[in-house]
Every structure is written in structure tokens, then in C-alpha cells.
């Protein structure tokens, strides 16, 4: 049984600058891993998606990885 990574580590606010954490939820081509695979709650998955998109805008994460 997979646990929610963010509640397990007591993270209440998912920050777009935490690229080391956000990278865990990207597949090799840079797409956001879906919630079945990531195993996090839907509430956190939505926050995660926003954080990753903000990080992409600021050039911290790729839109498409080669």
C-alpha cells in the first residue's frame, strides 16, 4: 500500500522551488505522474500539479525532457 508522500513527511504547502521533491513525481519525459502511480491524495495531487506548472514556468523543471 502506497502512502501519501506529503502527509507522511508532514508537508502542508507544496513549494514550486522544491525541485528535488517535485522531480520524484515526473516521469522520464517530464510529464506529471498520475495519481494512481504517485500514490498521493487527490487534494495533494492538485497542489502538486500547480507547483510543477509554476516550476516549469520559471525554468526550474522542463516542459518536455528529451
Amino acid at each position: 500500500m502506497k502512502q501519501d508522500y506529503f502527509s507522511a513527511n508532514n508537508i502542508k504547502h507544496i513549494d514550486y522551488k522544491d525541485i528535488e521533491i517535485l522531480k520524484r513525481f515526473l516521469n522520464p519525459s517530464g510529464k506529471i505522474v498520475n495519481h494512481k502511480r504517485s500514490g498521493i491524495t487527490m487534494k495533494n495531487q492538485r497542489k502538486l500539479a500547480v507547483a510543477i506548472k509554476n516550476a516549469r514556468f520559471m525554468g526550474l523543471l522542463p516542459f518536455v525532457a528529451k
Binding site: N9, I11, H13, I14, D15, Y16, K17, D18, E20, I21, N54, F57, M58
Partner: peptide
């Protein structure tokens, strides 16, 4: 080049250092 304004909270939100 570009900037991003976000609503956030007063507490430190960066968790990676703790990890």
C-alpha cells in the same frame, strides 16, 4: 526575464533541507 507572483503562507515552505 520573467517573474511569478504567488499567494503563500508566512511559514517556511521549503522542505527539501529538512529531508
Amino acid at each position: 526575464i520573467r517573474f511569478l507572483i504567488l499567494k503563500t503562507v508566512r511559514e517556511n515552505t521549503i522542505a527539501s533541507k529538512r529531508f
